[in-house]
């Protein structure tokens, strides 16, 4: 493996002032384990401070830095130069913002708008069942938790949503499905009927065609498609229906 790479980033830029969009090329000299966020920062510090991008934790835990590199939605803070060159078999990368929400500037898209879809599935316990006693936690067996615990690892990076075959128009998105499924399976949630209505509604699971791009791109390696399929198989015991 080389210790340095000559990298070209072809970045899709957007200027909200005059609504102009263009591709700008940046040539960089990069060490093998620099991450793409490091490259972006390098561009800011050495070449072009006006280029805007988004990140927060910079260690793959928050899902702020999602971008599309050569068409693949991923976390820029997790992608090492070395791995990128190897995976895409080229040192030239097209860098674009995800198209799940309007772009604000350059690679920054409006996550607030993207999150609207998560809000719609009510990512919380709507109506908590009564805990065993006031001073006690629920007991949930590890086996029971196993069914949904992986879904709770989602960081809402929207990579899955961006990759999904169902356009970004009507589908609430794979990650919204996860958020909804968690509480369908969570024994602490009493209000299942409302959830199932959303889940099986017009913007729900039936917009999924099992293309499994979600599982393929998910940086947290969550088998998202599995959860969506669980909903389709629909074998939940719904206390409100029984």
């Amino acid at each position: 493996m080389a210790s340095h790479y000559h990298i070209t980033l072809k970045i899709r830029r957007y200027d909200p002032e005059n609504r102009r969009s263009w591709i700008q090329n940046y040539h960089l000299e990069a060490g093998r384990i620099l991450r793409f966020v490091d490259l972006f920062r390098k561009i800011n510090n050495e070449q072009d401070p006006t280029f805007s991008w988004n990140s927060s934790c910079e260690h793959g835990q928050c899902g702020t830095c999602s971008v599309k590199i050569n068409g693949k939605p991923l976390l820029a803070c997790e992608l090492l130069v070395e791995n990128a060159v190897q995976y895409f078999n080229t040192p030239v990368f097209n860098v674009e913002p995800l198209e799940v929400a309007p772009v604000v500037r350059d690679l920054v898209f409006d996550l607030t708008k993207a999150y609207k879809r998560i809000d719609q599935v009510k990512p919380y316990v709507i109506s908590p069942a009564n805990p065993p006693s006031d001073q006690d936690e629920y007991s949930i067996s590890p086996n029971e938790m196993k069914q949904y615990i992986n879904a709770t690892r989602c960081i809402n990076c929207f990579c899955c949503s961006s990759a999904c075959i169902s356009s970004h128009r009507n589908f609430l998105g794979p990650n919204a499905m996860l958020a909804s499924m968690i509480r369908v399976l969570d024994p602490r949630e009493k209000e299942k009927a409302q959830r199932l209505k959303i889940l099986y509604g017009h913007r729900g699971v039936y917009r999924c065609h099992s293309s499994r791009a979600c599982s393929f791109v998910c940086p947290k390696e969550i088998d998202v498609a599995h959860f969506v399929a669980l909903a389709k198989a629909g074998r939940f015991n719904d206390p409100n229906n029984e």
Binding site: V125, P128, P131, S139, D186, E189
Partner: peptide, 20 residues
């Protein structure tokens, strides 16, 4: 406060008895 979090749906890891 732990109970507040737990009762509101935080997914604490559990022991085999189902407790935190």
């Amino acid at each position: 406060q732990i109970l507040w979090l737990e009762n509101r749906g935080m997914h604490f890891s559990r022991n085999p008895k189902g407790k935190l």
